[in-house]
């Protein structure tokens, strides 16, 4: 059974969002997502300073035989990127919710957060899926 972290927000594209402050969120992919993707071999993330747009591609993750787009759950400016993933994408597999974080975003439209799912809703969404 895949894990979720209570109190965080989730997108239907299987990203998690941890609200750090009123204007900042941290983003990664869920345990369910990493499980579906299998052993990750490479992650392509936006650079610090880049603008991301909700529901649009912000990068990709690769396993041996697949590549999947990462869709940003929020809009805003990237202020931090987890550079450790560049050399060790496997951290996402082992530790999706902490060491496997991907980016921190200075959000431009906090209203977007209300469109995301709660942990409970996401757990149901995955079960139905």
């Amino acid at each position: 059974m895949s894990k979720v972290v209570k109190g965080w927000l989730y997108s239907r594209e299987h990203e998690w969002v941890e609200v750090l402050s009123e204007t900042r969120v941290r983003v990664g992919i869920t345990d369910f997502a990493q499980n579906q993707l299998g052993d990750l071999v490479f992650v392509e993330l936006p650079q610090v300073g880049a603008e991301v747009v909700a529901n649009q591609s912000m990068g990709s993750v690769e396993s041996v035989k697949a590549v999947s787009d990462l869709f940003s759950p929020v809009s805003g400016k990237v202020v931090e990127v987890n550079s450790e993933l560049e050399d060790s994408p496997e951290v996402i597999n082992s530790d999706a919710y902490s060491g496997g974080w991907m980016i921190v975003v200075e959000i431009s439209n906090p209203d977007e957060l209300s469109e995301l799912l709660s942990a409970e809703q996401y757990a149901d969404f995955v079960l139905e899926g």
Partner: peptide
């Protein structure tokens, strides 16, 4: 590094 290739990326 096969994820770069056409049979996986297809239209991308």
């Amino acid at each position: 590094l096969q994820a770069r290739e056409q049979h996986i990326r297809r239209e991308k």
